[in-house]
Amino acid sequence: MDTIDQIAMKPGEAEEDGTVPVVAVEDLHKSFGSQKVLNGISLTVSRGETLAVLGRSGTGKSVLLKLIIGLQQPDSGSVRIHGQDIAGLALDQIGTIRKKMGFLFQHAALYDSLTVEQNVAFPLQHHKKNMSKSEQGDRVKELLAEVGMEGDLDKMPSDISGGMQKRVGLARALALEPDILLLDEPTAGLDPISSAEIDDLVLKLQAEHHMASIVVTHDLHSAKTIANRLALLNEGSVVIEGNFEDLRKSDIQFVREFLKHS
């Protein structure tokens, strides 16, 4: 039987050709006190696919991502990463799975006491101990060049704009070459030009790295640009799942209203 390390580090052939989902969420429930946030969500994402999770603010989109990466525990239901149920795993065990996941936080969550370069180097310093300092430095420069931030190595997070912080966050998320990328509101709070740049960047990275991606957003335009598939959430449940055309043709009142106001 495969250990957690083996499962997490070696995606199977079926996953490679996209027939078996890399991420499988089943009947997920989550409440905070008396407030029910997720009410039986089931979703799957395969390798090379981008799923956009849409919905109004406060419908549990970010909670869904945190459940997928194990930062929060579901009340019931399962989250399978490469076929491994992550519920109840110890912090160090789930760490092995997280090495293959990249997470871009809504506000980038850069370490404010570290420079841009040190932020991107952080995962490498902890998990690529066989890499020399200069190799790590080269890899950091390569990652920052990929997101167009190669000229800002020594800047502190407080000295760069929100869009730039998201780029650095994205470079950090890609540092360990993940095969799952989770993006929490990548364009929130950005001007239209910066949003379009982030969308282009995500598309480019997706084409280059062929990851399974889940993008949480309430920006329909961005979702339409970067995702193959969309899932619309309302009151903790998936109202509709499909491509943009499926959403456009839907007769569901909430879907129509959401599209009308987007």
Binding site: R98, F105, A109, F122
Partner: peptide, 11 residues
Amino acid sequence: EQIDAIEASAV
């Protein structure tokens, strides 16, 4: 969310 980011980086 910097502590979450540390955890998400498998540290």
